[in-house]
C-alpha cells in the first residue's frame, strides 16, 4: 500500500494552502472587526464637537440638551426642540419623553401578551397547536417595521381614533400599539425558551405534590424562568428605544413635551431619521444628531450589559440552590 501513497499531493503544497487560508480568515476577520469598532468610534467622534468645538458649542451643548428651559408656564412651552429656527432650541427633553411614552405603551402591550402566550404555548398547548403558534410568531417577526409603521399610520390610527375618540390621530397609544406588535416576537421567543428550559423535575415535583398544571405553571415554572423574563424585558426595552420606522410614521412627528399619551410624539431615533437629510454638515444641528446617536448607543449598551449581568447573577443563584 505504501507505494500508492507516493501519489499523494506534495506535503509542501498542502501546508502552503493551509498558511494561505489562515491569512485569508485572519485578514477578513480583522477587517470586519475593524469596521465593527469603527462604528462606535466614528459616531463618538462626530459628536465630540458638542464638547470641544466652540462654534458648535454655542448652540449644541449638554446644557442646551438636557437642562435649558425657555420662559413659560407649562412643560410644553419650556422644553422645546426646534433646531432650525432663527433662535435654535435644542432640548432633548421632548424627544426623550416621546421615546419613553412610546416604549411604555409598547412594553405594556408586548410583555403581558408575550409572556402569557409563551406560558400557554410551553405549558398548556397540545403539540400540534404549538407547531402552529411558533411559525405564526416567526411570521410576525418577519414583518418589516416599515410595514408595521404603514399599517399603524393608515389603518390602525383610524380604528383607534374611532374607538377611543382621541383628538389626534397619531399619538403614543397608536404608535405604542404597533411597537408592541413588533416587540411581541422577541418577548415570546425568549420567555418560551426560558419556560421550556425549566427542568422537567421541577414540574414533576410540583405535580407529585398534588398541584394542578396551572398552579405548577404559575408558582413553579414562571418563577424558575425569571431570568428569561427579565432578559426579554431588557431586550424588548432596547429594541423599543431604538425602533425608528414605526415611530416615525405612526407617532405624529411632533416634538412636544407632554406627558399625555394621547398627544403626538417624536422619539430620538425618529428625529435623527427625520432631520438628518437636511442638516448642514458640520453644524451644531449635525453634531447634536450624532450626539443623539451616541446617546442611543450608550443606552442600548447599558441596558444590554445590565440585562446580561442580572441574568448571570440570577442563573448562578438558581444553580446554587437548585
Amino acid at each position: 500500500m505504501r507505494s500508492e501513497l507516493s501519489q499523494s499531493r506534495p506535503a509542501r503544497l498542502r501546508h502552503a494552502i493551509d498558511g494561505l487560508m489562515t491569512g485569508v480568515f485572519t485578514g477578513a476577520g480583522l477587517i470586519a472587526i475593524a469596521f465593527i469598532f469603527l462604528i462606535f468610534f466614528f459616531t463618538l467622534r462626530e459628536s465630540l464637537p458638542v464638547f470641544i468645538n466652540p462654534e458648535v458649542k454655542e448652540e449644541a451643548n449638554l446644557r442646551a440638551f438636557f437642562i435649558e428651559a425657555q420662559p413659560g408656564d407649562s412643560m410644553i412651552d419650556r422644553y422645546i426642540w426646534q433646531p432650525t429656527s432663527a433662535n435654535p432650541k435644542m432640548s432633548f427633553i421632548p424627544l426623550i419623553l416621546g421615546t419613553l411614552k412610546a416604549t411604555l405603551v409598547g412594553l405594556l402591550v408586548a410583555i403581558p401578551l408575550g409572556v402569557a402566550a409563551a406560558l400557554f404555548t410551553a405549558e398548556f398547548a397540545p403539540r400540534r397547536l404549538r407547531e402552529v403558534i411558533k411559525p405564526v410568531i416567526e411570521l410576525l417577526a418577519g414583518i418589516p417595521s416599515v410595514v408595521l409603521g404603514f399599517f399603524a399610520l393608515i389603518v390602525l390610527a383610524t380604528w383607534v381614533q374611532d374607538l377611543f375618540g382621541f383628538t389626534y390621530r397619531l399619538n403614543a397609544w397608536n404608535a405604542g400599539l404597533a411597537l408592541g406588535l413588533a416587540l411581541i416576537p422577541i418577548v415570546f421567543s425568549i420567555t418560551e425558551d426560558g419556560f421550556t428550559a425549566v427542568p422537567r423535575s421541577y414540574r414533576d415535583a410540583s405535580l407529585a405534590l398534588g398541584s394542578t398544571r396551572l398552579q405548577t405553571a404559575i408558582k413553579v415554572v414562571l418563577p424558575a424562568a425569571a431570568p428569561a423574563i427579565f432578559a426579554a424585558f431588557v431586550l424588548a426595552f432596547g429594541r423599543a428605544i431604538g425602533e425608528t420606522m414605526i415611530l416615525l410614521m405612526a407617532g405624529g412627528n411632533a416634538a412636544i413635551t407632554s406627558f399625555d399619551l394621547a398627544d403626538p410624539l417624536r422619539t430620538l431615533s425618529a428625529t435623527i431619521a427625520a432631520e438628518l437629510g437636511e442638516v448642514v454638515f458640520g453644524s451644531g444641528h449635525y453634531a447634536a444628531l450624532f450626539f443623539m446617536g451616541t446617546l442611543l448607543f450608550v443606552i442600548t449598551f447599558i441596558s444590554n450589559t445590565a440585562g446580561e449581568l442580572v441574568i448571570r447573577a440570577m442563573r448562578k443563584r438558581m444553580q446554587g440552590e437548585g
Partner: peptide, 30 residues
Amino acid sequence: LAVATRSAVANLAGVPSIVFGLFGLGFFIQ
C-alpha cells in the same frame, strides 16, 4: 481581541438601525 469582538458584535446587534444610517452618511458618504 476575541473577547472584545464578541462583545462588540453582541452589542451591535442591538444598536438602532438609524445609527447605521448615521454612520453610513458620516463615514461612507462624507
